[in-house]
Write a protein that binds this DNA or RNA. Sequence first.
DNA 1: GCCAACGTTGGC
DNA 2: GCCAACGTTGGC
Length: 137
Amino acid sequence: MRYWLFKSEPETWSWDQQVAKGGAGEEWTGVRNYQARNFMREMEVGDRGFFYHSQSTREIVGIVEVSAPSHPDSTTDDERWDCVDIRAVQALPAPVTLEQIKGTPELAAMVLVKNSRLSVQPVTAEEWALVCRMGGL
DNA sequence: GCCAACGTTGGC
DNA sequence: GCCAACGTTGGC
């Protein structure tokens, strides 16, 4: 199993909205970036991911699971763009802020820090475990 | 609201 | 195929 990070502006699609979708999950639509798309194509059902709120709050708020493999993005007719479905697994008891991440030497290599603009990114097993611990799990 | 970083587009 | 111009993202 691999680990990922999904970034969303809460004003556009928030963790609460994701939770409200329940176990069925929801398409992670709208990605129009090849790198991010390619990561989604690599995902498998059952892979886990962090749900990150960008812009206003800048923190990892929850954990999601890939519930459907890569398929065409239903919000466009452009065949280039695919997406996966994800469902909420659980909220982090204590959201982990970007500030905390930047202040943690072990997390200095996270894509979130090094390439802040990438909206779908891989997370290493070590990073995953540490962020979970920081988040109170 | 500003601006740096970065991806994409299009002229040559 | 290069590179300048432009648009978008996201941290601050």
